[in-house]
């Protein structure tokens, strides 16, 4: 249970970063922290205490080995979600650079032309 609670705390730290920070880059870092918290939870879901890495090393013992594996599916999901997170982060950073180019600052208090 403790790892799950720690993940939730990590998640909340990310949310805090998004809500409270005034710097665009720090907001992006908050987003990345949230992503990692979710990824950690996903990998915890598939973990089995004392489980082995899901790699088959010999053909004869395949079925015996398979019974000791941790659940490999969440790991496959995480690779996908990391790739998605990577592309979102790259896009966010590019937007930050562009915003810096236009406004000359990364402070969100000065970047607010849209309201209402």
């Amino acid at each position: 249970m403790v790892p799950y609670i720690l993940c939730m705390i990590l998640f909340l730290i990310g949310v805090y970063g998004i809500i409270a920070k005034k710097n665009l880059i720090k907001i992006v870092i908050g987003m990345v922290i949230i992503e990692y918290a979710v990824n950690l939870i996903l990998i915890l879901v598939g973990y089995r205490s004392g489980g082995a890495a899901p790699i088959i090393t010999s053909i004869e013992g395949a079925s015996r080995e398979a019974s000791t594996f941790v659940d490999p599916l969440p790991q496959a999901l995480i690779v996908t979600s990391i790739v998605i997170g990577l592309s979102v982060t790259v896009l966010a950073i590019v937007l930050c650079l562009r915003l810096y180019e236009k406004y000359g600052t990364l402070d969100i208090l000065h970047i607010r032309r849209l309201r209402g």
Binding site: V83, V90, I93
Partner: peptide, 22 residues
């Protein structure tokens, strides 16, 4: 695909030059 997109993303960030307007 991963090689090309990651390198492209890196180059897009590295080549990018910030021009201050204002």
């Amino acid at each position: 695909k991963v090689f090309a997109s990651l390198f492209a993303a890196f180059m897009a960030l590295a080549i990018f030059r910030v021009r201050r307007e204002r």
